[in-house]
Each structure stands twice: as structure tokens, then as C-alpha cells.
Amino acid sequence: MVLTRRHPLHGIRLALVLTTVCCVGGCGTLGPASVQRDRTEYGDVLASTWKEQTLLNIVKLRYGDAPVYLDVSSVISSSALESQVSLGSSWFSGFPSDGDSQTVLATGRYTDRPTISYTPLSGERFSRYLLCPLSPGAVFSLIQAGYPVDRVLQLTTRAINGVYNRSTSPTRIRSADPRFYQLLDTLRRIQRSEALGMRISPRGDDDNSLMIISRGVPASVAKDSHAVREILQLKPDASELTLTFGMVPRSDTEVAVLTRSMSEIFAEIAATIEAPPEHVAQGRANPMPALPEATSPWDQPLVRIRSSTERPADAYATVRYRDHWFWIDDRDMRSKSEFLFILVLFSLAETGVAPQAPVITVPAN
């Protein structure tokens, strides 16, 4: 009887080939594909939680609770994909033989270790963000950048040259001066015409220089410009004005803007939340103040926040608090645009140097 056996070197050669393949492609990071995935998904989550945190803190003010803010200071995503293939073979030199045997084993592992750092808003940064009034220069820079002047001034100012805005805050509740809404409408018409421009430049201390630039002004715009100067009691032919923070101007060439802080803006919005009646009756939430009579479309709530026991199906932003859902309707464009503008203002309120993020050591796998 003649027996034929495979040479043992055949199994060794095969093992070497597979081992080489494993060494080349066995362990590697996800590479560019992870950037395409992570950047979009992390960005969506950060934007969504930013809206929810702001909405929740506004609701808390209605209930007399302290707002808490956590900034995401850094996001470090570390991921890796590992694979391994093992090959084993054995043969027998004796006779009779049970035959050759081979073993193949493949393993894989995916690792994702995101490192997210949170920075609580407190101390000096809390004061800058929430308690300090917005800079008049920053407010007018937004207008210069193209934001609607009427919406900006209605949300951010208490008064301009002694002409007062409406307030729904329990501590400052009052109707708007008769000429404040006229001022908003007139300024909006001037902005849309693009016949009058302005330039803002630092002047020293907290004051800024406000330059009014004319470009072949038609009669209707000239009339509106004259009306604005009359309402604010400005010098009729002054083209350079001083922009400053204050209640009343020091001269007829000064625009004194009494701006709100972010906490004041939040209090204005919190006062008009549609809180559950049972919470108000039980004393858990502040009752809605006796608001001044609404005489203009401008008297509508800045942001309409609704409440319900069931989670809304179509919401722009929603949070759960005290066994109720508080939300902004996704079909309410006025409330959505105002809320988005509040988020922009919240970023603008940071006037100092941002604190350094904590130093984090991440393994390089």
C-alpha cells in the first residue's frame, strides 16, 4: 500500500501568507469616513441640546428655579476598528495517521471612546453672559450686518433716548410709549430702502461713533429719516452721532440705548409662557402678570411657549419639566426666528476672553 501525504511546508507557507495579510490590514482607524459621520452627528446633537437647555432655563424662571448652564468646551472622538485572523495547522509523521488538521480563527473589535468636556457657567462668566446689559455697539453691529432693525431693537432694548419699549416682566411691566412702535416701523422702512447706511467705530470708553451715510435719498426715505430724528430728539442735520448706554441722551447728537441683559430677555419671555393652570393655582409657577392692553401687533409674545401633558408631535424645541412638556411649535415662524436670534445674542453676550478648555490626554491607540 502506498500512502501520499501533503508536505508540511505547504501549511507553513499558507500560514505565512495569511499572517502577512493580517499584519497589513488587521488594525486601523476609520479614517475620513469617521469625520463625515461624526462632524454632522455631533453638530446636530450640540445644536439640539443648546436649544433645549435655553428653553429649559426660560421655563425654570417661570417656576422660580435657578437656571443652570453647561457649555460643551471640547469634543474628542477616538475610534478604531481592529481585526485579527489566526491560522493553525498540524500534521502527523507517524503511521497510521489520523490525517492533517487546520484551524482558522477570525476576530474583530470596534472601539469608540468619545471624550466630552463640560464647563459650568459661573462666576465672572455667568455675570457677563446673563447679568450685564448688551453692548449698544454690539446691538447696532447686528443691525449693520443685516438683521431686521425692528426685531433687534424690540428684543434687546428697554428704551432709546427715553422712548420706552413694552415690558411684560413682573418687575418692569408697562406699555410701550406711543412712539416706540412708530420708531420701529420707520427704521425698518429705512433699512429696506438701503438708501441710508451706517458705520460703527469705537470712540473711547464705552461710547461708539455712529455715522449716517446717505446715498441719493428719495423723498419718502428723507421723510422717515426726519421722523426718526424727531422721535429721538436728534439734531436734524447731524450725520455723526454718539452711541452710548443710558436712559437719556446728554445732547442732541447722542443716541442713548438702554439695553437689556440676557436675564431680562429671558424674564420677558418667561412671563408669557402658557404654564399649566393647575401649577399656577397650586402656587408652583408664577401667575401671568396683568399685561398691558395689546394695542399693536408688536404686543404679541416675543416667543410663544406652549405646555401639554403629552409630548408634541411637531415641535421646534421641546423639554420636559414638572411632568409637563414645554415646547415651541415648528410651524410658528415668528417664535422660531426670535428664539434663534436669542441664541445668537447669547453668543454675543460673551465680551471677555473665553476660559481655556481643560487639558486632556487622549491615548493614540
Rank of each mutant, 00 (worst) to 15 (best):
L348A: 07
P114A: 04
R151F: 05
T20A: 15
L55I: 06
T4P: 02
V68L: 07
L56D: 08
T29Q: 12
L243D: 07
F341D: 02
Q102T: 14
R5T: 12
T4Y: 09
Y164K: 14
Q282I: 00
G246N: 09
W298H: 06
T20I: 13
E254L: 05
R172C: 06
G25F: 15
S135D: 15
L345H: 04
T119H: 04
L55W: 04
T309Y: 01
M1Q: 04
Q182M: 07
P236K: 09
P8L: 03
D71V: 04
D224E: 12
M288V: 15
S78H: 10
R203N: 12
S77N: 09
L16A: 15
Q182R: 07
S175A: 15
L343A: 10
A354V: 05
F245T: 10
L55R: 01
P358Y: 01
N57C: 05
G137A: 15
R6G: 11
L232D: 08
C22H: 11
R188Q: 13
R125E: 14
V362E: 13
Q191A: 09
S122W: 03
P289H: 08
G352R: 03
T103P: 04
Q191Y: 07
F140T: 03
S117V: 09
V221H: 01
T171I: 14
L134Q: 05
G246H: 10
S74Y: 00
V359H: 07
V68H: 06
E194D: 11
F126D: 09
H324Y: 12
R166G: 01
T115D: 12
L155A: 09
W50E: 14
T103N: 15
A222Y: 01
V75G: 01
L340I: 08
R229L: 03
R306F: 12
V359A: 14
L234H: 09
A317H: 02
V85N: 08
G352D: 11
E82P: 01
E124G: 02
D314T: 03
L105Q: 15
A281H: 07
T242D: 09
S79D: 11
V59L: 05
H10I: 15
S135Q: 10
M333F: 08
S93A: 13
H226W: 07
V359D: 13
S261Y: 07
P8Y: 06
L291V: 04
R179C: 02
I58Q: 02
Q191T: 08
Y110D: 11
P96H: 03
